[in-house]
Amino acid sequence: MINTEYFTLGHISLLLGFILIIVGFWGILTQKNIVKIILAFSIADAGINILIVSLGYVIGKTAPIIDGSVVQKAGIDVSDSIVDPVPQALVLTSIVIGFGVTALMLAYAMKLFTAKKTLHINKFNDLKW
């Protein structure tokens, strides 16, 4: 069904990205320890980042830096030689955002542990219905 001739690097990394995201979601929904949930978020973030980068893949081309391995005069059209630079820019932002959120979540985890001496998610249901 899936023709291996057309199964490129892009496909492989895309698949990897999706698998990581699913694993991350699984972790978020099933793990009980708060730190493990945060780790699951990290896994999902990694998955998304791989996904984004792999969407930028162009077969056979190289990094979007105009130096020795591409024609290096300014002003020349390099669009035949490079992969898509836009996802790389997006993923940069995504990584930073992921970092910020993870840092915040860890701070929360620290405070939650200080408050109740446990990291079990089920113990933190003070507010309900």
Binding site: Y6, T8, L9, G10, H11, L14, L15, F18, L55, Y57, V58, I59, S79, D80, I82, D84
Partner: peptide, 10 residues
């Protein structure tokens, strides 16, 4: 995934 085709150009 199915709608992904590796690209050949920008």
């Amino acid at each position: 995934f199915m709608l992904y085709e590796a690209r050949t150009g920008l």
